[in-house]
């Protein structure tokens, strides 16, 4: 038990360091970026000195960059992500929260479809004796995984919105109406889910093949259990273990990937907010979106770790007093993923 606490303590500490590093690097990178945010805000016209003075004072831009950095970092830890740089002074956190629901409306279905679909397709591919079926699923997975999702999205728009006219091209509901229309949800969710589905299918297939080759499966078969019972009740739970890790990362990928998918479908989520902010040099919003994504990804990784520890009996054994080896390799890989 103590070993496990030490493990989680280390995980939390490294996450915290990572979090601060992300903010620091990005803050100073944005400071170094070319262009004058005030001029960008005003547009391609001369800037009146009086306006520059007022907005500089209103946003504290006259303070030295170190002071602003320290202030900002302090604010972040109290939950204040600053204010959107504009003439409306909207809190960044409010802005992000107002968009987060729209992004989740895409990400959660995409996550579920890709996870459940990946488990089913991967298991079928691993088990089937029909070569063409395995070849079709595995080959299709490689192809779809290699396709950039924004391009795939444009392709879907062309075929299903413009040629066939089945789904709308853009937006999340008819103009001037609140909420999310289901027909608007279809194409972006498919776009988001596709490459993750392909990836998870591949992982699931190899994990299932491995699982099916193990002794306990033979034991189950020799007990006379039906082959589907062996597959779904004995082999599957074991083959699912790698999926816990993969699914944890995949949520991060889906959220980060929403930037491109939302741009293609004009979906007003966090991704579109992020792109707008980059175009306008709205640095506080850029930082805010990255911080929210970083926190979500870190939390998901911690959660994945906890869940993994709970479901994998071998890990529980590792944490027992006899053996106290933390799973070093896996931890390193997680940090890489977050940084990427």
């Amino acid at each position: 038990m103590k070993a496990r606490l030490i493990h989680y303590g280390r995980l939390l500490l490294s996450s915290l360091i990572l979090f601060i590093a992300v903010i620091t690097v990005l803050f100073f990178l944005l400071e170094l970026a070319p262009g004058d945010p005030i001029q960008t805000l005003v547009g391609d016209v001369p800037l009146s000195e009086a306006f520059r003075a007022q907005i500089t004072a209103a946003y504290g831009l006259d303070k030295p960059v170190w002071e602003r950095y320290v202030l900002y970092l302090g604010n972040v830890f109290t939950g204040n992500l600053g204010f959107s740089f504009g003439t409306n002074n909207e809190p960044v956190l409010d802005l992000i929260l107002s968009r987060a629901g729209n992004t989740l409306a895409l990400a959660v279905p995409a996550f579920l479809i890709s996870t459940i679909g990946g488990i089913i397709l991967g298991s079928i591919a691993a088990r089937t004796r029909r070569r063409w079926l395995d070849g079709g699923i595995s080959g299709g997975a490689v192809a779809l995984f290699s396709v950039p999702n924004f391009w795939f999205g444009m392709l879907l728009i062309m075929v299903f919105s413009i040629w066939l006219g089945w789904f709308p091209t853009q937006g999340k509901s008819p103009y001037g109406q609140p909420g999310i229309g289901l027909e608007y949800l279809v194409l972006p969710v498919i776009t988001m889910a596709t490459s993750e589905l392909a990836y998870k299918t591949r992982i699931m297939r190899s994990s299932m093949i491995e699982s099916l080759g193990q002794d306990f499966v033979d034991t189950a078969r020799s007990k006379g259990l039906s082959s589907s019972h062996v597959l779904w009740r004995h082999a599957l739970p074991n083959a699912l273990l790698p999926m816990v890790t993969v699914s944890g990362y995949s949520l991060g990928y889906i959220l980060a990937g929403s930037v491109l998918v939302e741009r293609v479908f004009g979906w007003p989520g966090m991704g579109l907010l992020f792109i707008d902010a980059i175009n306008r040099q709205n640095n506080m919003v850029i930082l805010g979106v990255v911080i929210v994504l970083t926190v979500v990804i870190i939390l998901v990784n911690i959660l994945t770790d906890v869940v993994y520890g709970l479901v994998d009996p071998r890990l529980r054994a590792q944490f027992s007093p006899q053996r106290t080896l933390p799973p070093e390799g896996r931890q390193d890989r997680q940090s890489d993923e977050v940084a990427a």
Partner: peptide, 21 residues
């Protein structure tokens, strides 16, 4: 899964209500 389905169902519902405005 249940939670996510509830969420999508919920957002889908609002759109239906707005259509006749």
């Amino acid at each position: 899964a249940a939670g996510a389905l509830a969420l999508t169902a919920c957002t889908g519902g609002t759109a239906g209500g707005g259509n006749g405005a």
